[in-house]
């Protein structure tokens, strides 16, 4: 039995390292390139570890662009999207899970189909809509678009999550006279914290990733998010990839921090919410 255990451990690590090799190596290559001086990136064969590591790419990037601003914009948009989407989704998810109302199935199904709609195809109508609402060139417009695209999945997650929380505690709170809102805010939300947090990670990362609308709905440099800012540099730097990949490293770090903060909740939340449905 012991030998078998050892064999299994070896097998496990072998498989795990294979996966990681595929998943992590581009990130290592990204970091490595960003630390190379311009001359070294055009070396053949390419070097894995920079021979003359330098932060030159980072400092150039910092000087040339509004990078700090882009970073703050991304963080602001992603956090605000997360805050709004999580709140709205948990309210809706709770209603779906607890309250039998007419047309519940239909509405739930409608929200799921909304998930299927590729945002790119609605670029122009949404652009026109935002114009009519006066939300072009505002954070709010971008946040609204991001919330919309994160919502269907988020609602679904929260719905699944609340469905599997026993209802007795809330019932007790009701009986104690807490009322609907009171029950939700004081009892349900805290109980659903793991679900909320994994939902938050999902919303944050989807806003962090968003590109097409951030590109289309803004014309101001000072409102650009990181992906758009970085994309705009492609034309400027061409094949001088050390600059672009320095930007890539910078944009990945905040997401890593956010993820690391809430990581321990995510699996719990997903298990209860998304998958069981």
């Amino acid at each position: 039995m012991k030998r078998r255990r050892l064999l299994f451990t070896v097998f496990w690590w072998g498989a795990a390292l294979l996966f990681l090799a595929f998943l992590v190596f581009p990130v290592l290559w990204m970091i490595s390139t960003s630390l190379k001086p311009s001359g070294e990136i055009f070396q053949i064969p390419p070097t894995w570890v920079p021979e003359h590591p330098t932060l030159q790419a980072y400092s150039t990037l910092w000087q040339k662009g509004n990078f700090l601003r882009y970073l703050l914009n991304s963080i602001l948009v992603a956090l605000a999207t997360t805050g709004i989407a999580v709140l709205v989704a948990s309210m809706a998810g709770y209603a779906f899970a607890r309250l039998p109302f007419i047309g519940r199935k239909t509405v739930l199904f409608g929200i799921l189909t909304a998930q299927m709609i590729p945002g790119v195809l609605f670029l122009l109508p949404i652009f026109v809509l935002m114009k009519q609402l006066g939300l072009l060139n505002t954070y709010l417009g971008l946040i609204l678009a991001n919330v919309t695209f994160a919502l269907p999945f988020a609602i679904w997650m929260m719905y699944g999550f609340y469905k599997h929380i026993p209802a007795e505690i809330e019932e007790a709170a009701w009986v104690d006279g807490a009322g609907f809102g009171g029950t939700f805010f004081r009892v349900v939300l805290p109980m659903g914290m793991p679900g909320l947090l994994s939902c938050a990670i999902f919303c944050f990362l989807s806003a962090w990733d968003e590109f097409v609308f951030a590109l289309a709905l803004n014309t101001r440099d000072e409102l650009r998010t990181m992906p758009v800012g970085l994309f705009s540099f492609v034309g400027q730097f061409g094949i001088e990839w050390n600059y672009l990949l320095a930007g890539a490293v910078l944009v990945t770090i905040p997401a890593m921090v956010f993820f690391a903060l809430f990581q321990k909740y995510i699996l719990q939340g997903f298990a209860a919410g998304a998958v069981k449905g």
């Binding site: 602001l76 956090l79 605000a80 997360t82 805050g83 709004i84 709140l87 939300l135 505002t138 954070y139 709010l140 417009g141 946040i143």
Partner: peptide, 9 residues
Amino acid sequence: IIMTSVVTG
């Protein structure tokens, strides 16, 4: 967060 976003918006 919501406040800041609304205000900045």
